[in-house]
Design a protein around this nucleic acid. Structure first.
Length: 823
RNA sequence: GCCGGGAUGGCGGAACUGGUAGACGCGCCAGACUCAAAAUCUGGUGAUGGUGACAUCGUGAGAGUUCGAUUCUCUCUCCCGGCACCA
């Protein structure tokens, strides 16, 4: 027996045991309740960072806890291996993206293993390998054949010097990161998935996700953004341009419209620019803004009066038509009716260009502030200055005005979604090839299933100027599957969100080479517990939900939603900023593991803050976790070494101290079970276990019964600690004398009888301030309790000479005596 | 700008459903052990006043509801995440 805690040795031995016994190999067993626990798979960026360790420790703790509850647990791991950083590294180090990626995977796998996570490594997935993206390409074609895929123009950031498309991240202050040239918005044809076909279901089914954090559901709801509104036609005075159609959620403000505003990319804007140099110049200025909503929403509002006039269909008033840089082409029809009195953005714009502001809504109640001279009044209220619609409420006016417009055939009610279809084309090399062929005579033809996968060549020279695929005739030159004539492949690759939208289902059958999924997928899916960063609250989780529903409609999976329960971990920050390589504020978990061992690092990360909160990293405190484990080791070793002959045999009945010790021990089991099992809050569970160890340490062990009680407490402590620090508990369980490994033990049970107590400490307040604490019999009635409280010296001091108003009793906790000064 | 979240001792955090603010840990202070140091152990530790019992103040700022507010409502400040090509 080791008298000193040696983490390295202890951890190697435990890991060897798990490997030898294939402990974490998941086997489908219809007779056992399954539990699929998944942490979002990592991008193989090079080395693990603290955020990774936190994420995967949470998953491992939950997996091991569920295993102790008797579940058949699957916990897989894989690599989200396509992506931009590999291309950057390729340029920097002159190494093909594939080589760099595989090296990183090899290194990070070792780090994972050293941390002792209970993964089924047989199911490892690497998304940049053809056996994975084969089925992504296959699925894409399935969607294409179902009409859920189409091609249209979309705007990208164009670097005019490097002649390449830039990611938003690569545009810094409006300029390309390498060339420093001003980026331009440019339209190019791209492939889209019709996620909007599922908008309604994606919105409705949020209600089914009872075990998702409310904040994530709210964000998704707002992102999908179902808006009831109206589509309204405005005739223009020029005969050459067609009508301008706008979408609004506020048809009740139609009388307040003082101008129309078009997006710079609006067809009418483009048409006007053809004949007008000023407009053309303005449009080209608007092009120097990167493709990001945050960018458009924060730039200085600028506009140009086109000279064109439009007619308000409700009152035939003539209003000017402007082009404005704050109008989004992607939302609604790319044109808006501007109501400066009742919209913040229109108000700001109208003030800059001295456009009229006409109030048509007044507050419904007197409490609201409404001063349209100084700011827009955006609340829903009562109509004024709106002719026959005056005095109507929002709901009445909405109905009446839309009905009027419908009758005149110039408008109609319309449901509008903020959600846009998902553009999946990327003009990059390091991604899954889009399996499409362009034939001059047959048009666009999908690659036949038997020719899949379209394999991405890995041995490439990568210079960063455009995709190497566009220069590789051996890749893009092919023949048309329909007519057999020479044709060309699509050289764009998929958005990497494609790979991460279905990997969770593939983990059930990663070695299935004949089809995307098999019956094992139905056994394991949906994921019971999904864990990942809060930064994925919208995009990744929404895309996965969409894929799951689309897969269901193709008969590939059986459930409606991919992830039953979701835990969104907070960011790991250092010095108040997100830890990232670019900021140079990363902490290397590897050196901590070498210094203290994996258990200490795992324990510290789980103890430092609750999982959903952001974690401010500090080096201090790791030492404290290590001290706790050293102390645990010492106490177990001492307990085992305690000679039985030194102990008095205890024929006497159980003492009050022994009873209280056991009560405390079971109270802790109850709390830790609740914290880990229900609340998923590990820091408080660990705090409780630290209290238990403190209590065990302070307990004087004199009799054989004492020894038994301490043993019971230590065993419970090791079992409860084992999901968090699996290695040290593996060793100490053996030291306590157990033959079977702790990994096979069930979770400890609370003895409800042990929890019973005879006395209670009750707080006594006078007018809400704590004045005393009294110890009373647990079964005390309210009258006796009140009497005891009133008799306490300090309470008396605060109530004598005052009039007793009432007494409030919170059972088993608190009594508040409310008194009033006698006047 | 819009959507979502956060702010509690010197620091990380606790207080779960409106009921003792500061559990647990770090740090710090004192003591024990030691020739000495490290390690370890014991005690103390929100602020102010008081020998003490105790009292007053105190959860980003300001208001409100309540017998009672870190918790609920309103207004504001600062910080973090997302905004569709970072993953």
């Amino acid at each position: 027996m080791e008298s000193q805690y040696n983490p390295k040795k202890v951890e190697e031995q435990a890991q060897q045991y798990w490997q030898l016994h294939k402990t974490f190999q998941a086997v489908e067993d219809p007779l056992k309740e399954k539990f699929y626990c998944l942490s979002m798979f990592p991008y193989p960026s090079g080395t693990l960072h603290v955020g990774h360790v936190r994420n995967y420790t949470i998953g491992d703790v939950i997996s091991r806890y569920q295993r102790m509850q008797g579940k058949n647990v699957l916990q897989p791991i894989g690599w989200d291996a396509f992506g931009l950083p590999a291309e950057n590294a390729a340029i920097k180090h002159e190494v093909p993206p594939a080589d760099w990626t595989y090296q990183n995977i090899a290194h990070m796998s070792q780090q994972f293993k050293r941390l002792g996570f209970g993964y089924d490594w047989n199911r490892e997935i690497t998304t940049c390998k053809p056996d994975y993206y084969h089925w992504e390409q296959w699925f894409f074609i399935q969607l294409y054949e179902k009409g859920l895929v189409y091609r249209k123009n979309a705007t990208v950031n164009w670097d005019p010097v490097d002649q390449t498309v830039l990611a938003n991240e690569q545009v810094i202050d409006g300029r390309g990161w390498r060339s420093h040239a001003k980026v331009e918005r440019r339209e190019i044809p791209q492939w889209f998935l019709k996620i909007t076909a599922y908008a309604e279901e994606l919105l409705q089914d949020l209600d089914k996700l009872s075990e998702w954090p409310l904040q994530v559901k709210t964000m998704q709801k707002n992102w999908i953004g179902k808006a009831e509104g109206a589509l309204i036609q405005f005739k223009t005075t020029a005969e050459t341009t067609e009508n301008i159609e706008i979408f609004t959620t506020r048809p009740d403000t139609l009388f307040g419209v003082t101008y129309l505003a078009l997006a710079p990319e609006h067809p009418v804007s483009l048409k006007l620019a053809e004949k007008n140099v000023l407009i053309a110049n303005f449009l080209s200025e608007c092009r120097n803004v990167k493709v990001a909503e945050a960018e458009l929403a924060t730039i200085e509002k600028r506009g140009l009066d086109t000279g064109l006039k439009a007619i308000n269909p409700i009152n035939q008033q003539e209003i000017p038509v402007w082009i404005a840089n704050y109008v989004l082409m992607d939302y609604g029809s790319g044109a808006i009716m501007a109501v400066p009195a009742h919209d913040h953005r229109d108000f700001e714009f109208a003030n800059i260009y001295h456009l009229p502001i006409r109030q048509v809504i007044k507050p419904a109640n007197a409490n609201s502030d409404c001063h349209v001279e100084t700011s827009a009044f955006t609340e829903k209220g009562i109509l004024i200055n709106s002719e026959k619609f005056n005095e109507l409420t929002y709901d009445e006016a909405f109905k009446a005005i839309v009905q009027y417009l419908t009758e005149k055939n110039v408008g109609k009610r319309q449901v509008h979604w903020r959600l846009r279809d998902w553009g999946v084309s990327r003009q990059r090399y390091w991604g899954a090839p889009i399996p499409m062929i362009y034939c001059e005579s047959c048009g666009t033809v999908p690659v036949p299933f038997h020719e899949l996968p379209v394999v991405l060549p890995e041995k490439v020279a990568f210079d960063g100027v455009g995709s190497p695929l566009k220069k590789m005739s051996e890749f893009y030159k092919t023949t048309c599957p329909k007519c057999g004539q020479a044709a060309e492949r699509e050289t764009d690759t998929f958005d990497t969100f494609m790979e991460s939208s279905w990997y969770y289902a593939r983990f059930a059958c990663p070695n299935q080479s004949e089809k995307m999924f098999d019956k094992r997928t139905n056994y394991w899916t949906p994921v019971d517990q999904y864990i990942g960063g809060i930064e994925h609250a919208i995009l990744h989780l929404l895309y996965s939900r969409f894929f799951h529903k689309a897969m269901r409609d193709l008969g590939l999976v059986q459930s409606d939603e991919p992830f039953t329960r979701l835990l969104t971990q907070g960011m790991v920050l250092k010095d108040g900023a997100k830890m990232s390589k670019s900021l140079g504020n990363t902490v290397d978990p590897q050196s901590l593991v070498e210094q203290y061992g994996a258990d200490t690092v795992r324990l510290f990360l789980m103890f430092a803050s609750p999982p959903e909160q952001s974690l401010e990293w500090s080096d201090a405190g790791v030492e404290g976790a290590f001290r706790f484990l050293k102390r645990l080791w010492q106490i177990v070793v001492q307990h085992v070494g305690q000679s039985q002959t030194e102990l008095n045999s205890s024929g006497s009945p159980i003492t009050a101290i022994q009873k209280e010790f056991r009560r405390f021990c079971h109270e802790i089991i109850r709390k830790v079970t609740d914290d880990i099992g229900r609340r998923h809050i590990f820091n408080t569970a660990i705090a409780a276990m630290m209290e238990l160890l403190n209590t065990i340490q302070a307990y004087h062990c004199e009799t054989k019964r004492d020894h038994m009680l301490v043993k019971e407490a230590l065993e419970a402590l090791l079992l409860m600690l084992s999901p968090i620090t699996p290695h040290i508990t593996h060793a100490l369980w053996r030291i306590l004398g157990h033959e079977d490994a702790i990994i096979n033990q069930p979770w400890p049970k609370v003895d409800l009888e042990a929890l019973q107590r005879e006395t209670l400490d009750v707080v006594v307040q006078v007018n809400g301030k704590v004045r005393a604490q009294i110890t009373v019999a647990a079964k005390i009635d309210n009258k006796t309790l009140e009497k005891a409280a009133l008799e306490h010296e300090n309470v008396k001091r605060h109530i004598t000479g005052k009039e007793l108003q009432k007494v409030i009793i919170v059972p088993n906790k608190l009594i508040n005596i409310v008194v009033k000064e006698n006047v």
